[in-house]
Simulated scan of single mutants.
Amino acid sequence: MNYHIYKSVKNTNEKIKFINSNYNQNLSNLALFAQHQTHGRGRGNNLWISKKGDFTSSFLFNKKLELSKLGQINILVVDRLIKLLEEKIVDVSFEFKWPNDIYFNEMKLAGILIETTIQKQEINSLIIGVGINFISCPKFEDKNTVRLRDFSQNISPLNLFFSLSLILEEYFDNFQNHDFSKLSKGLTLKILKKDKIIKLKQNNQITNGKLIKVDEFGALVLQTANGYEYFTYGETL
């Protein structure tokens, strides 16, 4: 893993993509941390709002994987980030909002953005952007937020970055050996609004259904008027 630390970047995913294209002839795995990200972005057209001192990072893996594994990549990253946070902060349990946001008591703490390079129906490389509200609580009309500093004063953003980079590299090196059935069952216990009626937005269409679980492929399973339906992408409202 090659590490890149910056005081400020415009966008960590774009910066690590640039480094990989121009300076990474050996196709090493890359990890990038910025003390300040000025133009963060989330899924779709969403912005990621952060201040200097928040956790903004990206990880790039030059690894070939089947395109069908994208959902498993997502739940693996979510699972490892939650477990790392719970190891660092004792007696606190975090939740996740499908597909890839981390919450505490229905307040958003962190978000994950995964981007891939695809050729011939195969993933050639993937970028994992991770943002954590470390010192700030951004204000939104439709959600409340929480910051990591409220749980502990003893966690360093940079130390958390190094811990996460080592964990992700180890898990992607052994990607094929993971028990995703067991992993998905554990995440189902932590998913927000389990067994409740939710709305899922997909391609500007809204589906109402009871949230049942996350399956071993990373899909969200809803019980709707049509029976059990499986969603591999979308946004839970």
Rank of each mutant, 00 (worst) to 15 (best):
H4D: 09
Y6W: 14
K7H: 15
S8E: 15
N13A: 07
K15F: 13
I16G: 07
K17E: 15
F18M: 13
I19N: 08
I19K: 00
S21F: 05
N22T: 14
N24I: 06
Q25F: 09
Q25V: 09
N26I: 09
L27G: 15
S28K: 09
N29F: 01
L30D: 04
A31Q: 05
L32N: 11
L32Y: 05
A34K: 08
Q37F: 10
Q37D: 09
T38S: 12
T38G: 06
R41W: 07
R41H: 10
G42P: 10
R43N: 05
G44K: 12
N45G: 13
N46R: 13
L47N: 13
K52Q: 13
G53D: 14
F55P: 01
F55G: 05
S57E: 08
S58Q: 05
S58A: 06
S58W: 00
S58K: 00
L60P: 13
F61G: 09
K63Y: 10
K64Y: 15
L65D: 15
L67I: 11
L67R: 00
K69T: 11
N74A: 09
L76K: 10
L76Y: 06
R80G: 10
K83L: 03
L84K: 02
L84C: 15
L84W: 03
V90M: 08
S93L: 10
E95Q: 08
N100Q: 10
N100H: 09
I102G: 00
Y103L: 05
N105Y: 03
N105K: 08
K108W: 14
K108E: 12
A110G: 00
G111F: 12
L113D: 03
I118P: 15
Q119T: 03
E122V: 14
E122A: 05
I123N: 15
N124Q: 10
N124S: 03
S125R: 00
I127T: 05
G131K: 11
I135W: 11
S136E: 15
S136H: 03
C137G: 10
C137R: 02
P138M: 04
E141F: 07
D142E: 12
D142Y: 06
V146E: 08
R147Y: 03
R149S: 01
D150Y: 07
F151C: 02
S152T: 10
Q153A: 08
Q153F: 04
N154I: 02
S156K: 12
S156F: 14
S165Y: 01
L166T: 11
L166M: 07
D173A: 01
F175C: 14
F175A: 14
F175D: 15
Q176Y: 01
H178A: 15
D179I: 04
D179Q: 07
S181W: 02
S181M: 07
K182G: 04
S184G: 14
K185V: 08
T188E: 03
L189Y: 05
I191T: 05
K193Y: 09
K194F: 02
K196H: 02
K196C: 07
I197V: 09
I197D: 03
I198W: 10
K199S: 06
Q202H: 06
Q202G: 04
Q202W: 02
N203A: 14
I206V: 07
T207P: 05
T207R: 07
G209K: 00
L211P: 00
L211F: 03
V214A: 02
E216P: 15
T224R: 00
E229L: 02
F231E: 14
F231V: 03
Y233Q: 11
E235L: 01
L237V: 10
